[in-house]
Computed example of a mutant assay.
Amino acid sequence: MKKPTRVAIQGIKASFHEEAAFKFFGNDIQTVECSSFKQTCEVLENKEADYVIMAIENSIAGSLLPNYTLIREYNFAVVGEVYLAIQLHLMALPGVKFKDIKFATSHPIALRQCVDFFYDFPHIQVIEGSDTAACAKKIKEEQLTDTVAIANTLAAELYGLNIIERRIESNKKNFTRFLILKDDKSEQVKEINKASICFQVSNHVGALSKVLNIFAEQQVNLTKIQSMPVLGKRNDYYFYVDVEWNNMEGYDKAVRQALKYTVNFNIMGEYKKNDKV
């Protein structure tokens, strides 16, 4: 019997990372729970997982900058992406009524995304937790009848909680982008039309513009650019860029030309665009 694909996630079962993993790989996978993003990388490096799924940006909270550093330092290959709509629900033990609620708990980012809802209920004390699903699990395990968790439907189903208020997030168009990582850059992904690259440029006027124009001239679309300082080096930056193309030849030509004007040029991964939310 074929063993299920092992996917390392930050958080526990029914977290948004697991939901994103199911969306990308399907439900017949084995998720490996990790307490931090760094631990997911260690698990993959030690071959205790086949893939890592890692959040890289949120439409409200922005980029998760430390994760760019992890991908580069561990030299993992980006082999895919998946977007997940972040829908947040209020859930409690069966039988608990809204009037019984004294506390609401969730991940800090999830709580911030629901401030408008709680503005109308100042008597509810908001408590930060380590993970959305972990907060739901705690309510189940400790039988908390005065507390609600803010999490996804997966958590409600897994931990036997009732959803007493749906979609309490302030922005209904909130989504998170996740990258799929593998510890093998030699494996080729079929039907590639997107890439994540990283490089440095010299510190003079027009250096970055020169590189970006190379991609534009070859009809390669830059969908994202993110800069991060190089530790210990003033005025030196890593630039993380996502590019898409319709013509593979144009992309290859752009990369060859960009190599002449960059330092530490690294193709972090080439994969198939997957931006459906």
Rank of each mutant, 00 (worst) to 15 (best):
E57Y: 08
K23V: 03
L144D: 03
S170Q: 10
I53C: 00
F265C: 10
L144V: 02
A207Q: 12
D100F: 03
F24L: 07
V78G: 02
S186L: 11
E48M: 12
A151D: 09
I56M: 14
N27I: 11
I124D: 07
K3A: 15
A149E: 02
C198S: 15
K173D: 15
F103D: 00
L93T: 06
K23R: 12
P108W: 08
Y238A: 04
M248V: 13
E81R: 06
E48H: 10
K38R: 13
G250P: 06
A216Q: 14
A8W: 02
G269E: 07
E48K: 14
I192D: 03
A216N: 15
T132C: 12
E187F: 12
Y240R: 01
P229V: 12
Q188I: 15
Y159G: 01
I267A: 10
A20I: 02
I127V: 15
A254H: 08
E169N: 13
F98Q: 08
F25T: 03
A156W: 01
K185S: 14
C135T: 05
I164K: 02
A21E: 01
K38N: 13
N171D: 15
E157R: 13
A254E: 10
E270K: 13
T147W: 00
V78T: 09
Y240W: 07
N203V: 06
N171I: 12
A85T: 10
T145M: 08
N247K: 12
A216S: 15
L161F: 02
I192S: 12
D252C: 13
